[in-house]
Write a protein that binds this DNA or RNA. Structure first.
Length: 504
RNA sequence: UCCCCGAUAGCUCAAUGGUAGAGCGUCCGGCUGUUAACCGGCAGGUUGUAGGUUCGAGUCCUACUCGGGGAGCCA
């Protein structure tokens, strides 16, 4: 009587309607009603409602399923059928069940949890739908990044993570003991990839990178992933054109492959679909004018006004909720009101924080002096004044790294660019044309009081067949935040490493 | 490094300086179409740590630890 069982993935169930299949997965949720149990199973590819009715066929396991602890591992067999009432449109009429392992009580319930608790259970949080969706999109993003460069003639070059002390901003690097010698975790692969660029023409490196800055914000990680292409015989405009093609390519790929996930995350798909070439090109000097101008002021004043309106709306709703909780007859009505009240209080707190900061941001923008580096709030203003990504170019030489190419026409400037993602998501790319003139590079190394000796190999690249070249670095997590509409970067990487956080 | 907020049951949160509570989860019972199901019941606590004020501290004060948000700095 033994039959071969058909193992199916939940994402493929539509191909098995009317057939008996076996799912291998975990119990995501269980609801029961006397003689019928609805078991929501996840298998990594999707969720499927499995319906167990109490009858002779299910007798041996009905009670087990009914009392199944969440996240117990299992194999479940049944006939696939289409049903509007089921999540995903298909469900399983269960005929067989095998418990692989019964879980003890699972920490993460279908109810609300705080971020501290969830981050402590990051290893289990992966199983939740939102985190599952985000990491799937990350997978697509990483693949799209490699695809773009591989398909366009770039060679992948891995750069070292242990790097010698080069004197540059050592305080922001992690020091490691390397056989008794202090070395540092790389904060960029760029200098190394430039060398490979002179061998292969078009190259890129892609790996983790480390910053020891003591920043505790929603935009910072101490360990994050960066892809850094480098192109020979390219000046600034050409590098910018590549960055534009690249961003459009990865954006389209994620929209194509992960529409369902983006929708689940509540991402405004229109906002992504509307991203088209050409992106905005804005020089640093024009950006400074923009910050000083009426538009920036009006934006912040409108923001202030909108947020105040929102604040009073929420306060009003809060009042009615408190009344509702007193008057509601049903317990569940009270619970729902209580839950909403918590949400509103969180929103209110955030709004008040933002409102407190707006005058400060206004001040920063108005008093911004030509020559300084653009701050986070300045970038937000610039990006929100445009509906396409903004290339901000030609920063003052004094605030940028020594390897950036000095501008021919205005030696106060360098040929660099940052790309600001729309909707206020901020900087996702930093890039430049590199200084290819030996004498100028040496001058700049000395200007910054850097030791020359560790850079001899780098100077060699300008001694032997120097050519105009340039590239950029894209932060994977910040890009993912933009694509997914994430408020905090900690959700954009499987194991976030942040100041003071290393578990799990 | 600085500023603001927080820490109470496994989870999310209540509690004028005066007897520590609710919902969810667990456990027990009920329910054949549930969608964070629902309904009834039981159990569940050294209120982050150490001091202090007070007749009396979850609540006030001080320090510390941890967390959240922001500033600076950065990508």
């Amino acid at each position: 009587m033994a039959r071969m069982k058909t193992i199916a993935n939940i994402k493929d169930l539509r191909n098995y309607v009317g057939k008996e299949v076996t799912l291998q997965g975990w119990a995501y949720n269980v609801r029961s009603s006397g003689k019928i149990v609805f078991l929501l199973v996840r298998d990594g590819t999707g969720l499927c409602q499995c319906v167990v009715e109490k009858n002779e066929r299910t007798e041996s396991f009905f009670e087990t399923v009914k009392k199944l602890p969440l996240e117990s591992s299992l194999e479940i067999t049944g006939v696939v059928r289409a049903d509007e009432r089921a999540e995903g449109g298909h469900e399983l009429q269960v005929t067989g069940f095998k418990l692989v392992q019964a879980s003890p009580e699972y920490p993460i319930t279908p109810k609300a949890h705080g971020i501290e608790f969830l981050m402590k259970h990051r290893h289990l949080w992966f199983r939740s739908r939102r985190q599952h969706a985000i990491l799937r999109i990350r997978h697509t993003l990483v693949d799209a990044i490699r695809r773009f460069f591989n398909d366009n003639g770039y060679i992948n070059i891995d750069t070292p993570i242990f790097t010698p002390a080069a004197g540059e901003g050592v305080s922001t690097l992690f020091q490691v003991d390397y056989f008794g010698e202090p070395v540092y975790l790389a904060q960029t692969g760029q200098l190394y990839v430039e060398a490979a660029c002179m061998a292969h023409g078009k190259v890129y490196c892609f790996g983790p990178t480390f910053r020891a800055e003591k920043s505790k914000t929603r935009r910072h990680l101490t360990e994050f992933w960066m892809v850094e292409p480098e192109i020979a015989f390219a000046e600034l405009d050409e590098v910018i054109a590549v960055a534009e093609d690249f961003i459009l390519s990865i954006k389209d790929r994620v929209l194509r492959d992960n529409r369902a996930e983006l929708e689940f995350l509540g991402r405004d798909l229109k906002a992504l679909e509307n991203i088209q070439r050409p992106f905005v090109r804005l020089s640093y000097s024009d950006a400074v004018d923009l910050l000083h101008g009426d538009k920036a002021r009006q934006l912040l004043e409108k923001d202030l006004n909108d947020k105040n309106v929102r604040l009073s709306q929420l306060e009003k709703e809060l009042g009615t909720l408190v009344e509702l909780q007193k008057s509601a007859a049903k317990q569940w009505e009270k619970d729902k009101a209580a839950q909403r009240e918590i949400e509103i209080r969180e929103d209110l707190e955030e709004l008040r924080e933002q409102l407190k900061n707006i005058p400060h941001h206004l001040e920063l923008a108005r008093n911004f002096e030509w020559g300084g580096d653009l701050g986070g709030s300045d970038e937000t203003i610039i990006s929100r004044l445009h509906d396409q990504p903004v290339f901000c170019t030609h920063y003052p030489r004094a605030v940028k790294a020594f390897y950036m190419k000095v501008n021919k026409d205005d030696p106060r400037l360098v040929n660099n660019f940052d790309l600001l993602a729309p909707e206020g998501f901020g900087e996702i790319i930093g890039g430049s044309q590199r200084e290819d003139d030996y004498d100028m590079l040496l001058t700049k190394i000395k200007e910054e009081n850097l030791p020359v000796e560790p850079y001899e190999w780098y100077l060699d690249l300008r001694r032997y067949g120097s050519v105009p070249h340039g590239g950029f670095g894209l932060g994977v997590e910040r890009t993912l935040c933009w694509l997914c509409g994430l408020k905090h970067i900690r959700e954009a990487i499987p194991y976030a490493r942040m100041m003071g956080k290393i578990y799990p």
